[in-house]
């Protein structure tokens, strides 16, 4: 009996040790970047690394020097918000349609809506580049917004379909018997119920657009540049300015981390739903 209890305690301890190890490994590079961003430049490359130092905002001042960073921050924000808004609107309707209507070929259509998300971005950007070039849209926010919609619309359809499926159809039916139209039932009954799912979809869409790099590096120049591209501009021909990369990298990362932590429960649910239901 005692031996049984001892092994049980050891098992418990081992589980916690491994889980904590996984947490440390997950967080360490992020924390290291944040620490580096506050290091005085002369300590950035110190080996052995210096862990205790007087934090400085020097790297951040240098990132903001010249005023361009604010402009690029706004580009990122506007493109990410705009994309999310449009994709969400289309996703609400299409997701609702897929969750509520049974007709021939509905499964095929649902899968077809996912195909764009499977296509490697590099294969989409080649023709989009030619198209935007002929429309004179290179280096505009429009080019980014349009190209981001190619993967955020499918994402929002996919997630919203799942969330709407969880709303019992009877709720809407009783509303419709009372004289509500279907559209009215969608907005008055179902949408309020899926608000958390809607928020999770919006957050995930925003993060994907905010993080995007390949389209942005190809489609933008000095005007419509977004933050991920701006970070790489601190890798110059002469040197890699690690202090500035750490500071700008931290600024890009912080909103993402806050959002991800806020919506964690729903993100996992939204992403994994398909995995369980198939």
């Amino acid at each position: 009996m005692n031996i049984y209890r001892v092994t049980k305690v050891i098992n418990q301890v081992l589980i916690y040790v491994f889980v904590i190890l996984a947490v440390i490994l997950s967080l360490f590079p992020i924390v290291y970047l944040l620490i580096t961003s506050f290091k005085p430049p002369e300590l950035t490359f110190a080996i052995p690394p210096v862990w205790f130092f007087e934090p400085t905002l020097k790297n951040y001042y240098e990132v903001f020097a010249g005023g361009k960073f604010v402009k690029y921050f706004l580009n990122s924000l506007i493109v990410a918000l705009g994309t999310t808004l449009v994709a969400l609107l289309l996703g609400i309707f299409a997701g609702y349609g897929f969750a509520r209507f049974r007709f021939r070929g509905v499964q095929t259509l649902r899968l077809a809506a996912l195909v764009p998300q499977m296509l490697p971005p590099i294969t989409i950007i080649v023709p989009l580049y030619v198209l935007f070039n002929s429309l004179n849209l290179i280096d505009t926010r429009w080019a980014l917004l349009i190209s981001y919609l190619t993967f955020i619309i499918p994402l929002s359809i996919w997630m919203m379909t799942g969330f709407f499926m969880d709303v019992p159809e009877e709720l809407e039916e009783s509303a419709m018997i009372d004289g509500c139209t279907r559209l009215g039932a969608l907005f008055r009954i179902s949408l309020p119920i899926v608000t958390p799912g809607l928020a999770a979809t919006a957050i995930l869409g925003f993060i994907y657009a905010w993080n995007e790099f390949l389209y942005a590096v190809i489609l933008t120049g000095r005007d419509a540049r977004t933050l991920p591209v701006t970070i790489t501009s601190f890798m110059t021909n002469k040197a890699i300015l690690w202090g500035r990369i750490a500071a700008s990298g931290s600024l890009v990362l912080v909103p993402v981390l806050i959002f991800a932590l806020l919506a964690q429960r729903y993100l996992v649910r939204g992403l994994s739903r398909g995995a369980i239901k198939g």
């Binding site: 947490v23 997950s26 590079p29 991920p228 990298g249 890009v252």
Partner: peptide, 21 residues
């Protein structure tokens, strides 16, 4: 679970450069 979720949400550019450092 929240902490473990963070790496997959990180901006790829930041991930690449942090590991390069």
């Amino acid at each position: 679970r929240s902490f473990i979720l963070l790496p997959m949400m990180c901006t790829n550019v930041v991930v690449g450069l942090t590991w390069r450092l």
